[in-house]
């Protein structure tokens, strides 16, 4: 095969030694490509690209709903159908509805909030590897990719969240001032989701096999986070369980998020400062950790 080819040139093109190249670049004030910017300039860069972030998020939402007749209606229909199924299986068949006063509202708040959190996990995991093509065509701070996923998932879920308010009204929850905290609680959950998405996207980018575990993680979280049962009530029924296990189950990020949202809409859940402090703490912690972890990988994304 190679015997069919002609000769290669005698001389290799001349090469500037690295030190001289560096000196030349320095003298002309050139900037190095694909290096991690300092944290400060990374944040500044994100600010410069904020408009792009909205365009990308809008595009994400549009393209998700373009392919079917009912479009964005599906983001209401799906969770409601899921809610009905859960109500029948867990509420009636397994009798979990005895746990709490207003099981329908309890279940739907938990389910819809959890759907959003699990969506940030799944689409956050795909946000880098699913966009390699885009990363190889456009230059922008890569952190926008997981962030945009979370924003678009939130927008997708807004109709579902409005449905929650309607369900609360239908099931005769009294309208109180606490309802005003509903959006605040959602905001805290979004911040948490951003942190989760940034963490998982870098993890999956580095070790892509992790993507296979993500569905398992979301499934497990769905079962341990008290989506369709009250952790407190169920745990009180187990006599010899150590107390700290109950606390861990109750205050892990996902479970505490569900409680947080329930406290704003449901009368059976009083506002407790512990819930809010822990939830806000998780949100800040996950967000900061996620951002720093993601930033430290900037300059490596796109080669995989």
């Amino acid at each position: 095969m190679s015997s069919d080819l002609g000769p290669e040139p005698h001389h290799q093109p001349p090469v500037l030694p690295y030190a001289e190249a560096e000196e030349l670049a320095r003298r002309h004030g050139m900037t190095q490509v694909a290096v991690r910017p300092s944290l400060g300039s990374y944040i500044k860069e994100i600010w410069l690209y904020r408009h792009l972030m909205w365009s990308l998020a809008k595009g994400e939402v549009v393209s998700q709903h373009r392919d079917n007749y009912l479009g964005i209606l599906w983001s209401v229909i799906n969770p409601i159908l899921l809610g009905v199924a859960y109500y029948l299986i867990f509420g009636q068949l397994l009798g979990l509805s005895r746990d709490v006063d207003n099981f329908v509202a309890f279940l739907t708040v938990g389910l819809f909030t959890f759907s959003f959190i699990s969506a940030t996990l799944t689409s956050g995991a795909r946000s880098l590897l699913g966009n390699v093509g885009m990363m190889r065509s456009l230059a922008f701070p890569r952190v926008l990719l997981p962030v945009v996923k979370v924003i678009s998932e939130f927008v997708n879920n807004i109709p579902a969240f409005l449905v929650l308010v309607v369900i609360a009204l239908i099931t005769e929850e009294p309208v109180t001032w606490e309802w005003l905290l509903f959006p605040v609680a959602l905001l805290i959950v979004v911040v948490m989701g951003l942190g989760i998405a940034m963490l998982i996207s870098r993890a999956v980018h580095n070790v892509r096999d992790l993507a296979n575990i993500v569905p398992l993680i979301t499934r497990l979280l769905r079962y341990v986070s008290g989506v369709f049962f009250s952790i407190q009530v169920r745990f009180a029924n187990i006599d010899d369980a150590p107390r700290w296990v109950g606390l861990v189950l109750e205050y892990q990020p996902v479970a505490v998020s569900l409680t947080l949202v329930r406290e704003t809409l449901l009368e059976g859940f009083e506002l407790r400062w512990e819930t809010w402090a822990v939830a806000a703490g998780w949100a800040v912690l996950l967000f900061v950790a996620g951002f720093v972890v993601f930033w430290r990988g900037e300059g490596t994304y796109g080669r995989a």
Binding site: Y18, A21, E22, A25, H28, G29, M30, T31, Q32, V33, A34, M135, R136, S137, L138, A139, G299, T300, Y301, G302, R303
Partner: peptide
């Protein structure tokens, strides 16, 4: 768009 595995690129 694709970070080099080693070596350096400068742009003006």
């Amino acid at each position: 768009l694709v970070p080099p595995s080693s070596g350096t690129i400068w742009l003006g």
